[in-house]
Amino acid sequence: MNPFIKNKKQLSIFITAGFPTLNSTTNQILELQSKGVDFIEVGIPFSDPMADGVVIQESSSKALSNGMNMDILFDQLEAIKNDVHIPLVLMGYLNPVLQYGLEKFLIKCKDVKMASVILPDMSFEIYERFYQSLFEKYEIPMTFLITPTSSDERILKIVESSKKSFVYLVSHTSITGNKQTFQENLLERYSEIKALCKNVPLMIGFGISTKNDVEKAHKSCDGAIIGSAYIKSLIEKRDLVRELTP
């Protein structure tokens, strides 16, 4: 069974583990869950996040200087695993995972009940050639990114491998935190992509920040993922989830 749900307007939040304080990870997860967030991406901070804008970059370097690392993160997730009832997804750049040891990482993911893993700088081809068998051995489903310009053929291939997770649609070609503008032609493409996804949920992220954005996202996709705007709201001490939900 797929823990990610199709055809229900979902809201997902990306947090940077260890930001704003080292031990804030678990409280944030539980609080977001209690506010009705449908699933959460837990970001593993990395020193050189090449696809991230300033907000997530700075939250990552703060988290690292707070002392966050993979061991501490897994301990934190272990401590709340029985209190979390929504899917959690670990998201991060490949290098910290490789250095930790992919096999050890996957075993830990299973222990702390991660629903999926997103490694944006690991392409589908590299996954297939080098890592797929390990992910399958430990039954951790990968989630892959696609963009509006990804070919239909490629999308279908990724959908085929995502039966137990979802497809992550990057709203527009840009690093995180750059405002999305939802032009008509993009909305059309999103709908086409949703059709290609068949039973696999399609979640959209990158640059989504307002209630209006979320509503637009829900017209063509199954869920909206918010990252930079959430991190910003933490810094500004605003309750973003309340602002975004009816």
């Binding site: 696809a51 944006p120 700088d121 392409s123 590299i126 696609i146 990804s150 990057v170």
Partner: peptide, 19 residues
């Protein structure tokens, strides 16, 4: 075919740069 010299190299980039 994936750009590797032995075990090194390849293209480890987000989908955004694939095209």
């Amino acid at each position: 075919d994936l750009g590797f010299y032995g075990h090194f190299g390849g293209a480890f980039v987000p989908e955004l740069l694939r095209d």
